[in-house]
Design a protein around this nucleic acid. Structure first.
Lengths: 257, 257
DNA sequence: CAGTACATAATGTCCGGACAATGTGACCTC
DNA sequence: GAGGTCACATTGTCCGGACATTATGTACTG
């Protein structure tokens, strides 16, 4: 199969793109990945124009809709901005990543913190009113309960309590200690779709302080999260407490046009 | 101009859609709005199939790409889920709204809380190292500074401190007390694009406690936010403190597939 | 010199079709 | 009856074109 190539004027000379029609990877996806890589490595400088869609399509041997689909996916990610009559520009700010439904485990791992997990509890319990409402089950119904302590550098960082409906996934303590809950759920074939979160703060009582190696009255960051799969089922309800002295939520968010 | 209509089987009978080709509103947008309205009012029941794209297009007198564009926008909003070989389903969870770059003012107003704002400070100051780094200006450069107290039911809820580059917008105290900062910026022609946020917690010191009518040692929720416009300029740096006893961040987020 | 009108360039919208990939269910075979 | 095979339905990808809309710059006009 022939490879088509195209050149776009970057900051330090031209940037090359090419697509492989014999690959099973969709053409628009090939292009969007190359564009994203070029942007992230700085080969496409912030603020620079991308060159018009028609010509880019022609040079790559693609149709304009395909090129547009590639560009659109990066616009949705916040990496590009389109201006009618002007062109498409590389956004010029420190966009890192938008808010994702990532687990604390993944966050820490990405930050190179090598998180450790200690499973305090892995059992079942009767759903309280709050848990039942969140998971959409009857009050008093049996649900899975996991309590974990997340540590970095041997120091506790957060206390995580999760309730899950039964029959969804078999949680083994060993797995829980070696990876994050979301990864386990994804591996079990559950398609995470959305989550509803609430973030607040309170001060530690004696028991919490003890668990987290803080003093009584220390500030704590709290998060409650209900996660849904793509059928709309609630698949997890989490009630977490973080030491404010050691953790803060950081995220990027995009304005939907 | 002829109107085409289409019927999709909903929960309690058929749902009608129609597009008006004489309208300047894009066809895909007309359709997506009607679909969204039907979903929100429950005329399209959660979990119900949408009917295949080809037929829907035919009945509306639209092409399939146009119908797909309408559906895609709702998939991006998390309202619909596509399954290859199956069809398009109405997601059936309590999706309310994804995380948006909304101001506290809008949040409270939407919740029917009638927020009041008291401007404590509306002046300029020299940028500290932190502010300079966030706004991308030189340390010591003159920037605008606004401090506001946000109240509901006569009770303080949050202390808001914002730094802005000079020359971007003229902030008048009267306007600041009657609406939110983001709305003022949008009205001034600034296109908000993305923001980087950090949410943490700490306990109140004596001065903060006094300002917020809390006691010393009370838990506070803190947020720092840098907002960028679509050219990548930092247009605002906010450093806010909320009374944890009266406020928590709530939001919905979607998993990007 | 200022203001308008026009040409130009780029993205936005829309069409009609083609083939591929995938999940479901029915049918058939053993 | 159990299992595999195949037809079918549906979304996924891609094409090539057409016209509309909007912003920019230029040339013309008063």
């Amino acid at each position: 199969m022939g490879k088509h190539e195209a050149v776009t004027e970057g900051a330090e000379g031209p940037v090359q793109f090419s697509v492989d029609r014999s690959s099973p990877v969709p053409l628009y996806f090939q292009l969007s990945q190359q564009l994203e890589a070029a942007i992230e490595t700085g080969k496409l400088a912030p603020g620079s124009l991308l060159g018009n869609e028609i010509e880019l399509a022609g040079r790559l041997g693609l149709s304009r809709p395909t090129v547009r689909q590639a560009i659109q996916s990066l616009v949705d990610k916040g990496l590009l901005v389109r201006r009618r009559g002007i062109g498409t520009q590389v956004v010029h700010s420190q966009v890192k990543r938008p808010l994702e439904l990532s687990s604390l485990y993944d966050d820490l791992e990405a930050a190179g913190q090598k998180p450790a997990t200690k499973v305090l509890l892995n059992t079942t319990t009767e759903a309280t009113a709050e848990v039942a409402a969140a998971l959409g089950v009857a009050e008093g119904e049996e649900v899975a309960l996991v309590e974990r302590l997340r540590l970095t550098h041997g120091e506790p960082m957060a206390h995580l309590r999760n309730h899950l409906p039964l029959g969804l996934i078999e949680l083994e303590t060993a797995q829980l200690e070696s990876t994050g809950l979301y990864r386990l759920m994804r591996n079990a074939g559950i398609t995470l779709h959305s989550a509803r979160q609430a973030v607040g703060a309170r001060v530690a009582d004696a028991a919490e302080a003890e668990r987290l190696a803080e003093e009584e009255g220390a500030p704590l960051l709290t998060m409650q999260r209900t996660t849904f799969d793509d059928t709309g089922r609630a698949v997890e309800f989490g009630s977490h407490v973080y030491r404010a002295s050691r953790y803060a939520f950081e995220f990027q968010l995009l304005v939907r046009p």
